[in-house]
């Protein structure tokens, strides 16, 4: 039987974030009809991109501007889409936005939800995610009328599959748009240019104790700028007050899966690995050959990152 699958598309300045395409690829199984749900742009403007990954239906949800950033209203709008189009599984990204949206949908529907998942089998309703600080992989059997999935950004390689899509516009009545006892006072402006989102970055350069102070992190940001990379940090660097908490990668920080993770002066505690072990390639630069990260990476350099990184920046500048 054909299953209707919903995909909540995240946009950035009117453009589809790359990581959505991996999510679509993950959801695309045989006998599935893929509904892309677009809340922040004209469906027409993103149609071509969505079609190239196999989307056959696009639902454009019109929200009044003043409530567009309200996660309660957005959750209710998605539920309306689920009910209108008989959707039995809804996918979103496990990003900051997804973490504030997907659990609201699951809670209101009393539906099962697995966040940060990277493999889904819709025939047997099995889903894989990591648990226990990234030390185990859990296969979870989910039961429910509607299933909700938060897909780990960058965890699935996007594969194209051309289709042609129809657009539907969904207007919402006032009752769908109330958020009892909840009001948005201010939404953060997305940092343009400078700040590449840690969770979604293809390359991350992270610094730890070996960076010695906060000023030295500018060496990493200069190199990161040339590489279009994000800068991360270990807990030590954050707790020492060198960089803000938002840059922390690890158990109690951001969980990341970039294509390349360059660890500079990071020893590699279990808690740090919990945040970056699913990275594609790990390059470790550390003066201590015995530190844990040196035996658990793809390439290691026994040297001072403060000397290597500026050299790399120079090469990138001349490239």
């Amino acid at each position: 039987m054909m299953k209707n699958i919903g995909l909540i598309i995240e946009l950035d300045n009117g453009k589809i974030k790359e990581t959505n395409f991996g999510m679509i690829t993950l959801a695309r199984e045989k006998d599935t009809e893929l509904f892309a749900v677009v809340m922040d742009a004209d469906a027409a403007s993103v149609k071509e991109d969505l079609e190239s990954f196999g989307i056959t239906k696009i639902v454009e949800v019109c929200l009044p501007k003043d409530r567009q950033s309200n996660p309660v209203v957005r959750a209710k709008a998605i539920i309306k889409v689920i009910k209108t189009y008989n959707i039995c599984a809804i996918f979103g990204l496990s990003t900051a936005m997804g973490k504030d949206l997907l659990p609201r949908i699951a809670a209101l529907l009393e539906a099962p939800l697995v966040m940060d998942c990277y493999a889904v089998d819709l025939e047997q309703n099995l889903v894989k995610t990591s648990q226990y600080s990234g030390k185990t992989i859990a296969t979870i059997k989910i039961t429910g009328d509607v299933l909700v999935f938060g897909v780990r950004p960058n965890a699935v390689e996007p594969v194209k599959a051309q289709a042609s899509a129809r657009i539907w516009i969904l207007k919402l009545d006032e009752t769908s748009l109330v958020s009892k006892g909840f009001r948005v006072i201010k939404t953060s402006e997305v940092d343009e240019s400078t700040n590449i989102n840690l969770a979604e970055a293809d390359v991350i350069i992270a610094g730890g104790r070996g960076m010695k102070n906060g000023d030295n992190f500018t060496l990493l940001s200069k190199c990161a700028e040339k590489l279009t990379a994000a800068v991360g940090a270990s807990r030590v660097a954050v707790d020492s007050g060198w960089v803000p908490y938002s840059m922390q990668v690890g158990q109690t920080g951001e969980k990341v899966s970039p294509l390349v993770y360059i660890a500079c002066g990071i020893s590699g505690s279990i808690q740090h690995f919990a945040g970056m072990k699913t990275s594609g390639m790990v390059i470790a630069i550390n003066t201590d050959k015995n530190s844990a990260i040196m035996s658990n990476c793809d390439y290691y350099v026994k040297a001072d990152a403060l000397e290597i990184i500026p050299e790399l920046t120079k090469l990138l500048e001349n490239d």
């Binding site: 009393e110 099962p112 697995v114 990591s130 859990a138 296969t139 059997k141 009328d145 072990k277």
Partner: peptide
């Protein structure tokens, strides 16, 4: 509705 862990494997 429910979520049951059917298998855990070391990563």
């Amino acid at each position: 509705a429910g979520m049951n862990i059917v298998e855990l494997e070391p990563l």
